[in-house]
Write a protein that binds this DNA or RNA. Structure first.
Lengths: 200, 200, 200, 200
DNA sequence: TATGAATGAGCTTTCATTCAT
DNA sequence: CATGAATGAAAGCTCATTCAT
């Protein structure tokens, strides 16, 4: 990529990033069209390629930016002194909402990459594919799970939570008007329900 | 689809099905080209569209056919009187091999749909996405897990087994000469190893 | 290229060849647009690439076809029993006219490749670049030059003749209505003039 | 072009001229990119178009400048009192070296225009295409060729010399470090060899 | 005078789909 | 029933040129 991208007005940078996030999130790599990205960002075709060389370069940048931004947001948002298992999960979801306040489709994009099937795209991001997951694992390494029933399958519970969160986000995304706030409200309902089942 | 497809000679039907399975399995929906399918099947472009209307129609049919055939094969192959946990798993894998004897890429295709990311394709198969899984769950509903260590995370184990099976199939597929028999031999090694770990 | 090209009706083959010859001759490799070729040939974009894979493939084929056709036409037209130096030159020009009767821009295209400067195009035709020249040299190997003045610089004269022919063709080409017959009439004038100067 | 170009500091003028010479010489008109020229010159895109309106305008100016400068350099360098055939050739090559001392790619550029195939570019320089050649012919008009063997094909020899000079320059140009001085040393070897063959 | 971000028409190439035979 | 030549919209990408600063 062309580093001069960062000299652009923040507003324009973000318009381009958000457009790419949205189109990639909604279509996957192969079916995301640079034309759509450009239209969404309100810039010309040439400019996109001026800064990102080619489609895969844009994808790579967007992935990098998303993981870094998300991790940063978690770092500044999550309070590790409160290490209750469900509390941590709620904090993580809260951090996601913070991310979406600035970049509405960033979490959806990161979720979508889990199912990417174009080799070129996968290879491009292979080495960074677990960085966000690892950050989250870090938080949960010292999580207090004493409130959970003894026989709880935590990994499964983690997965269930992940599935629930991803599914809720997809549902919100498909509504006519995409409202970020609705995400947290909705997701919290599921987490509270799961806590009611799971706690002693 | 055009029901007259079933009036074709069985051999020709299977040539078309196998070709579609192979190309979809190897490339995913978006990157599978109808040209390649037609070449592989040794039929004309026109014929493919005569029977399946369009690409998504073919995909839908192939998915339907694969789930139904796989379930049928399991029904006729799996012996539920032998309900030992690992025994059942081996029987399932055995059933897969039976399937692959007739349709070499059918299991690989079904595996590949787990990572499909084209909305159109996903929507098309959404309602039938878990039918094979449900059939398998059925077998395991009455499985005898008494030999497993008490604290075994069966779901996790199931997943591990699924991951192992999928990975082994992918590896076999990538070899120069694709030998179906090698699949069972290879997979069995992993399952036995897992049993050695997992049993009391 | 796709050999099935030769199964097309001769008329259509020639329409495509002529279109390519014209556009390449007029613009050189880099500036010849496949859009223009397709428009000129009255076919669709897809068809061109169906038969020739890509632009350089088309260029290569057209060059091959042109050299072979031109040599063939010379072989069947030039009478080597009449080996007078100027007589041979006139016969060569006559052969060119025969070629242009079927493929109006073929000679112009071959001339244009002498000044091609795109590396990719040059590399593609490098090994066949002199085949027509060699054929002509063959005819002149046994030419009777006894009528020429002793101090005649034949090589130079050859070059002068080549320059004159190329220039005359370019001039004819630029006229509003391109008339192949005009070429021979015009070129003959120059050759006769040169003979008047050059002969004893 | 914008005459105010000449009000720029000589150093900047030459930076722009040298950049254009280099990029045009290396790529031909069609493939020479204004981006590359601008980068090489260390100026902005806007400035180039401010002074030369468009690419063809720059090409035209560069050609004009090159022919004029080269002729001027010959005029001030070549000593016509020494009119020996090979002596004159060496003087001409010497003059080229003088030119290259100030404009390293000027001779290479002029050579490259002999093979230009973009009509627009050719038309632009058509009327001035032989001015340098004519200047050289002038020098050779009164050249003393008495030392040459009687049957020498001088035109051919001229051509051979031209081919040798052009080829040597190309070779020098392709070396990692482009050393102008090497040109004369190298070319002289060939000319001396040719003299040894050609003289009585 | 000087910048370089921005443009958009143009390029080559791909591919699901159609239809005359 | 079967063919495959033919289509053309859409893709990713380039580059001479413009213009606000």
């Amino acid at each position: 990529m062309n580093e001069k991208f960062f000299d652009l007005k923040k507003e324009k940078q973000d318009r381009m990033i958000n457009a790419a996030l949205k189109i990639f999130a909604q279509n996957g790599y192969a079916h995301a069209s640079t034309d759509d990205i450009v239209k969404e960002a309100g810039i010309s075709k040439g400019l996109l390629f001026h800064y990102f060389t080619n489609k895969i370069g844009l994808y790579s940048f967007i992935y990098d930016y998303s993981t870094k931004y998300t991790i940063l947001e978690m770092t500044s948002t999550v309070d590790i002194s409160d290490n209750d298992y469900f509390g941590l999960h709620l904090q993580i979801e809260n951090a996601k909402v913070s991310v979406m306040k600035s970049y509405p489709y960033m979490i959806a994009f990161l979720n979508s990459t889990k199912n990417e099937n174009v080799l070129e795209a996968l290879n491009e991001i292979a080495d960074r594919r677990n960085v966000v997951k690892e950050k989250i694992d870090e938080y949960f390494a010292h999580a207090n799970r004493t409130h959970l029933k003894e026989n709880t399958d935590v990994a499964k519970l983690d997965e269930i939570i992940e599935f629930v969160c991803d599914a809720v986000l997809l549902r919100i995304l498909k509504e006519d008007e995409y409202r970020v706030d609705a995400y947290y409200t909705e997701v919290k309902k599921y987490l509270v329900e799961l806590r009611n089942i799971g706690y002693k």
